[in-house]
Design a protein around this nucleic acid. Structure first.
Length: 366
RNA sequence: GCUGAGGUGACGGAGUGGUCAAACGUACGAGACUGUAAAUCUCGCGUCCGAAAGGGCUACAUAGGUUCGAAUCCUGUCCUCAGCA
């Protein structure tokens, strides 16, 4: 896979080594952090979400902004997710009322109003965000679903992928973007737990032609990632493609995926866990001694535990983040106890630094 | 000292004769979190036995009483708060 020729990720200001982990700045912000905070953690890029941005900002505003990077004053790479995940997490679960049709996701915000979030809409919005990688809208498959339903969602995903590609090419042409300066276009593989569907979906997407493929769907069972579908996708993807583990994941999951050839990751885990008081800590005393290939190379530190309050020691001596350089376990526990959001900010910064170190170590090896 | 109100679990605060080991919060404890509906959610939280279902014991200031039955009604005591002397 990607071991011999080092692959790079091209973005607006140049190129960066792979693999990369991009935390989720869904609505154009990583909760409690600003772009300067993000940069301080050596995080090379972020993921924003088209669906959520679209819900808050309309098309015209997004176009006027000239790009999400400028809006956020963020200098790293930016990938925009299509909203495919929200097709399941929000629409299929009924949090927001909408219907999934072949046309796209149909909403009725008023009695006489119909709004369609289609594959074309998603691409158009993403192109106006001016990002480095655009992701095709897919029809998310719940892994518990049967073969028939999974097949339907693969077929819809493929249809949407074709339409997305067409729209993408159209906009590139209109904007005068060439192969060298246009964003990557990522196809997303569905197929649930069925390997035949995963294989078929991968091959069909390759026929359409993309810069990379994403491992979509929800391959998590009892908190454990199931890698068989990731493997099937990797096996059927051309060498020159980028492989993206959408929503992956825990440090050990990322490592496993990198072994399979995946080089791009995003996940809410470091930031959400951080906000919830769960900090990732390398099991060594010095940053130089970190060995991510040892089993159990890290542990969780539960910052909210009352017992921490009188602890004057640092969270980690193998970390150089804002939190670890300046504050004690006790102080952080106190900030959580009084409900101050700086606790979440500091913890998020810490966890992002943990992940950026992880990825740097992976870059050294692969 | 008089008058009025009141004393419920770590705390705030429901409950005013049986369905009460006591609502609901908070605090505390445990767990979860994977393309962010998530600064969120779940569970536990008198005590003992049990894996659980469930059961035992002790409890609503305190001591008595009424009643088949009391946190709830009556009486004494102690304490708190407000107003008046």
């Amino acid at each position: 896979m990607a071991k011999k020729d080092k692959k790079y990720f091209k973005f607006k200001s140049g190129k960066m080594p792979l693999p990369v982990f991009f935390p989720d700045a869904t609505r154009g912000v990583i909760k409690t952090l600003d772009s300067v905070d993000i940069a301080s953690t050596d995080t090379p890029g972020i993921l924003v979400n088209t669906f959520h941005l679209w819900q808050g900002l309309n098309k015209e505003i997004l176009k006027k902004l000239g790009g999400i990077r400028e809006f956020m004053n963020f200098n790293g790479a930016v990938i925009s997710d299509s909203g495919g995940f929200q097709v399941m997490s929000v629409v299929k679960k009924g949090v927001i009322e909408g219907k999934i049709t072949d046309e796209g996701v149909v909403f009725h915000p008023g009695r006489n109003r119909k709004v369609v979030f289609s594959p074309e809409t998603s691409i158009e919005l993403q192109m106006s965000l001016n990002v480095d990688m655009v992701v095709v809208l897919d029809d998310f498959t719940d892994p518990k679903v049967g073969h028939k339903e999974a097949l339907e969602s693969v077929e819809r995903t493929l249809d949407w992928a074709r339409r997305s590609k067409r729209e993408f090419e159209k906009i590139c042409k209109k904007k005068g973007l060439t192969k060298s300066n246009r964003p990557y276009l990522l196809g997303v593989v569905q197929g649930g737990d069925f390997m035949d569907l995963r294989e078929m979906c991968t091959k069909e997407l390759v026929k359409i032609g993309f810069d990379g493929l994403g491992w979509g769907g929800w391959a998590i069972e009892n908190g454990k990632l199931k890698f068989d579908s990731a493997e099937v996708i990797a096996k059927n993807t051309p060498e020159n493609y980028l492989l993206y583990g959408l929503g992956v994941g825990k440090p050990e999951d990322i490592i496993k995926c990198v072994e399979l050839g995946y080089t791009i990751f995003d996940c809410v885990l470091p930031t959400r866990d951080g906000r919830h008081g769960r900090l990732y800590v390398y099991d060594v005393d010095n940053i130089k001694d970190i060995d991510i290939f040892k089993p159990n190379f890290y542990h969780y530190f539960d910052a909210k535990k009352g017992a921490n309050l009188s602890d004057k020691s640092k969270i980690s001596t193998s970390c150089d983040c804002l939190l670890c350089k300046n504050y004690s376990k006790g102080y952080l526990a106190h900030l959580y106890k009084i409900g101050d959001m700086s606790a979440m900010r500091l913890s998020s910064i810490h966890n992002l630094r943990f992940f950026s170190i992880l990825m740097q170590k992976l870059q050294e090896k692969y």
